[in-house]
């Protein structure tokens, strides 16, 4: 990034792949993921002050992408479609996170509170540690532990119900 200011085009080139991949993971739709990618970078061009430089661009874009995707899940009221959808695997066969676990998490995202949904994405889809989630969500690791145990409860209910 040039010292002169935020170069959105350079940001796009460096971080666009990560935004697109994460949006695809959360939304399980290539088309929706491309829309989110456009939405986020158009938003940065229009309102560059959203990125205040207090965190790294990666951390900032993780938060923005998660927010945009969860909002899209809610706004489009397509929760049921996503829950029923057979989601194709997004990673290699030997990914540390199991494909089953990911599909299950995606299925309950829309039923979680905003905080829970964000923590679930970071923990189950991005494989982040408690400390990393706390940093991105700007809250204490203790709060993250509480959120994750609530989510584990919901996942348990979901499993029994299915």
């Amino acid at each position: 990034m040039a010292a002169a200011g935020l170069d959105v085009d350079a940001l796009y080139r460096t971080y666009g792949h990560s935004v697109l991949r994460r949006a695809r993971q959360i939304l399980a739709s290539e088309e929706d993921a491309s829309d989110v990618l456009q939405e986020i970078f158009a938003g940065l061009v229009a309102r560059p002050s959203q990125f205040d430089g207090r965190s790294s661009p990666t951390t900032f874009l993780y938060a923005v992408t998660t927010h945009a995707c969860l909002a899209r899940l809610r706004d489009r009221r397509n929760r049921l479609r996503l829950i029923d959808e057979q989601v194709r695997p997004w990673a290699s066969d030997i990914d540390p996170r199991t494909a089953d676990g990911r599909a299950q998490v995606r299925g309950v995202l829309a039923q979680l509170t905003d905080d829970e949904a964000r923590a679930a994405v970071y923990y189950h889809l991005d494989g982040m540690s408690h400390a990393e989630i706390a940093e991105v969500m700007d809250c204490s690791p203790r709060h993250i532990r509480n959120l994750l145990s609530r989510i584990a409860g919901r996942l348990g209910e979901h499993k029994e119900a299915s």
Partner: peptide, 21 residues
Amino acid sequence: MIDNELHVSDLRWDRLLAGEL
């Protein structure tokens, strides 16, 4: 479920690829 504390998250890989690490 694999323990996230023992492995490297996507966040850290993305930071590595972006030259932030």
